[in-house]
Computed example of a mutant assay.
Amino acid sequence: MLNELPAMNRHRGQQNPRKGLAFTVGLVTSWYCSNIGVLLLNKFLLSNYGFKYPIFLTTCHMAACSVLSYIALVFFRIAPVQTVRSGVQLGKIAALSFIFCGSVVSGNISLRFLPVSFNQAVGATTPFFTAVFAFVMTAKREAWVTYATLIPVVTGVVIASGGEPSFHLFGFIMCIGATAARALKTVLQGILLSSEGEKLNSMNLLLYMAPVAVVLLLPATLIMEENVVGKTIQLAREDFKIIWYLLFNSCLAYFVNLTNFLVTKHTSPLTLQVLGNAKGALAVVVSVLIFRNPVTVTGMLGYSITVAGVVLYSEAKKRNK
């Protein structure tokens, strides 16, 4: 009997890594599904379905994030609740929320005019804008090799733009604006919430940013998207599925943030970067298969060059740390 104990312990030791791997694979799969799902559903609602209210759609997303963030942190305790310690800190969070709103709204507007494949190609240039804002706002200098890797990042998008059959100038400007705002939020977050007493993990930051975003977006949607509530009710009378689409889409927007937090927590930064690049490529393939938007060899070549540039940029930053 005693001789069997080591064997039993070895057996348990073999099972745990498998369970850990299965858990990580499940997290990554959930992250991929929620990210790609919300992107495709946004495109479907705003472009194919004809729900032309991107600000109201973003307001629904933020309202869901407000409620679900509170439930996840307070009741399910997925992370310790961090409190806002001062009015100054709240003001910083509000500033980040304003930029975050601009990023999401601009991204949703761009999906009305651009295919998901091109949207993802432009979105891949986030490292370029992050490097620019970091240099301008913090005078942070990277090694020349790191800056050199940004050349293919930008060049790829230029090539993809020239080869995009569905290119739309306003949609392109909105997409660039969304990408730049996303990068600006990242840099500002590092500046504004840099002290140990003010640092918040991504789920707590979302908990406080989402209600502020609703307060900012609600008057904007009522002014800029006239009678949007009445029109949505009218759409629901004609096809009640719109209500289910909005509810599911809003919950999915929260799970994008939740799964991103969990994947970040359970994997390394390098793994996260590789998975993120692969996610973007998969989103392009799935969107083309679903929406059948035309793609060209030139466009795919440009996107590939951009992704390669992002990979080189990540590798250069890692080596120069």
Rank of each mutant, 00 (worst) to 15 (best):
S66G: 11
F133I: 02
E315F: 12
F172Y: 12
S268W: 04
G302I: 02
G13A: 15
L207I: 05
F100N: 15
S161E: 07
N204Y: 02
A178V: 05
V288N: 03
V105I: 06
L96P: 01
I78T: 10
L169G: 07
L192D: 03
E142Q: 13
K19A: 14
A213S: 15
P54S: 06
Y208D: 03
L96C: 02
I151P: 00
F248S: 08
Q89H: 06
T138R: 15
S195G: 08
A308Q: 04
V67M: 10
P211L: 09
M203S: 05
V288Q: 04
V158C: 14
V104E: 09
A63H: 02
L45W: 00
C65G: 09
F248C: 11
K279N: 14
Y49F: 15
S194L: 06
L192T: 06
S30R: 00
I191Y: 05
W244E: 10
R12F: 14
V285I: 15
L46I: 02
N204H: 03
L46V: 13
P211W: 02
E142P: 07
Q82K: 13
P127Y: 03
L222R: 05
L289T: 12
T126Y: 11
A178E: 06
L73Y: 05
K318H: 13
A178H: 03
A79E: 08
V88L: 15
T24K: 14
K279V: 07
K199N: 11
M203T: 05
L217C: 06
F129C: 04
V84T: 07
V67I: 15
P115E: 09
S86L: 10
N119S: 14
Q120K: 11
S86Q: 08
T306R: 01
L217H: 01
F291P: 02
I99A: 10
S69V: 05
F135Q: 08
Y147K: 04
V74Y: 12
L200C: 06
V285S: 11
H168N: 15
Y49D: 07
I99T: 03
V81A: 12
F240S: 15
N201Y: 07
V122P: 00
V104C: 08
P80G: 04
N227Y: 12
L192N: 04
N3P: 09
K279D: 13
G276N: 11
T155F: 15
N42Y: 04
E238A: 14
C175Y: 02
V136D: 11
F261D: 00
A183P: 01
S202L: 08
L218F: 13
A183W: 00
L205M: 15
L41M: 15
T267D: 07
A72K: 01
K199Y: 09
A220D: 06
